[in-house]
Design a protein around this nucleic acid. Structure first.
Length: 426
DNA sequence: CTAGGGTTAG
């Protein structure tokens, strides 16, 4: 194309550019060269470059391209914003999302289903569900995708009840859900304990002949497992033809959290035999199984193998599991050493586990340290005063009991005026 | 004359 000068034909160059930028076998750097070589790229070429960068490791480049495009007074169109908003979603940038939203309004594309879908998605991943919902509500016409995006936004932000309520409205509006919708709805059923709705969806799937692909199947396994229907979860798990790490994690974590520690650990060993690669979430399941079963030595071994064998850096939730496991077993000093060795600040879960452990093993020194840390995180947490006070009482340290009572009373006086404000905020 | 959306596990 270069030697024949066809490269100067913008339409022909566009085809070459989009192949290089988007194809599996393409090459984004090569596409950039074509783009830079083109004196006056048309809007198709700009959109293609934005699209390619949106899902690249560096989505902010898509935003930079949009800014450059605007400086050249190229008018963005209905194909520009879905890609640009995909970049905002991948960046998880509420600020960019709001700015792009302004441009959507400025160029009059706020009724385009794909543009609005992108906005709902970008606001949702930035956890601004109010904005997502406003955009969704202002849409006079909706389709299944936009309903799905909004439902999924609620489900992923742990607003399971809102997700289920919206699902009900969608059905009332006459839309028939597909597998993509149902995956999100099942996730909401799992999180809010709606076993009956989950079961109805399972029946619906069978009636409609919707296949149990890996995503929908995992969502179904998770829904049953979270709701304690372990046998159904197991049955769905076994019936799936394709499973990935998420599928195994749903089953392992479900078993672990319902007291089937041995079965969870057996399943983890089976995962290894089947050469599935475990990830950090798999180890949350394994460690919480150990915690339920009180398997201190095995749990400790698994924890240290995460990094040494699997190359996975333990996160705060893994530390939380091990601290709790050690604490329940009375190994308070080892648990405290573990906390000291962490890169992050310990959270309320970890200090709560320490406090419970020190209470059960009658260690007032450790309890005092844990209470101090918890009060740093949550200054008005009176529950911890009560625990500590009971420990003092058990030890006959009545002066400390009345000292604590006084502190609580003073704290009540200081915090009361602020309460209405706190409630209003929530 | 070219193109676009939504899904699972903690």
């Amino acid at each position: 194309m270069v030697v024949s000068a066809r490269i100067h034909d913008n339409y022909a160059a566009s085809r070459l550019l989009s192949f290089s930028a988007l194809s599996e076998s393409g090459n984004l750097n090569y596409a950039l060269k074509i783009f830079d070589y083109t004196p006056e790229p048309n809007s198709f070429m700009w959109n293609t470059m934005i699209r390619a960068h949106a899902s690249s490791p560096n989505p902010s480049e898509a935003v930079s391209l949009y800014v450059k495009m605007r400086r050249l007074c190229i008018v963005p169109g209905k194909h520009t914003f879905p890609f640009l908003l995909k970049a905002c979603s991948n960046l998880v940038s509420l600020e960019s999302c709001k700015q792009v939203h302004n441009h959507v309004l400025k160029f009059g594309l706020d009724l385009d289903l794909l543009v609005v879908n992108g906005l709902v998605r970008a606001y949702s991943v930035s956890s601004d569900l109010k904005c997502a919902r406003r955009v969704f509500d202002e849409m006079p016409e909706r389709n299944l995708s936009i309903w799905t995006t909004m439902i999924c936004g609620y489900a992923q932000n742990f607003c399971a009840n809102e997700a289920l309520e919206l699902f009900g409205q969608m059905i009332a509006d006459g839309f028939e859900p597909n597998g993509v919708t149902l995956s999100s709805v099942l996730s909401a059923c799992a999180r809010s304990g709606c076993l009956d709705l989950g079961e109805r969806i399972h029946v619906f799937m069978e009636q409609k002949g919707i296949e149990l692909g890996v995503i929908l199947g995992t969502a179904l396994v998770n829904m049953y497992a979270k709701n304690g229907a372990i046998l159904m979860a197991r049955k769905c798990f076994e019936s799936m033809v394709e499973r990935n790490t998420a599928t195994w994690n749903a089953m392992i974590c479900g078993l672990a959290s319902h007291g089937h520690a041995e079965e969870a650990l057996n399943l983890f060993q089976k995962l290894e035999r089947e050469q599935i690669v475990p990830n950090d979430i798999s180890f949350v399941g394994v460690l919480s199984a150990c915690r339920h079963a009180g398997l201190i030595d095995y749990g400790r071994e698994v924890f240290y193998s995460m990094k040494q064998v699997y190359g996975i850096e333990p996160k705060i939730e893994h530390y939380g599991c091990l601290v709790d496991l050690l604490g329940r077993g009375g190994k308070l000093l080892e648990a405290e050493e573990l906390i000291k060795g962490m890169t992050w600040q310990a959270d309320i879960v970890i200090w709560g586990a320490m406090l419970a452990a020190s209470k059960n093993h009658g260690d007032i020194d450790v309890a005092e340290r844990a209470v101090k840390e918890i009060l740093d995180l949550e200054p008005h947490n009176h529950g911890v005063y009560v625990v500590l006070s009971n420990m003092y009482a058990e030890a006959g340290r009545w002066e400390d009991v009345s000292r604590l009572r006084k502190v609580m009373k003073e704290d009540n006086l200081t915090k009361t005026p602020g309460w209405s404000h706190v409630d209003g905020d929530n």
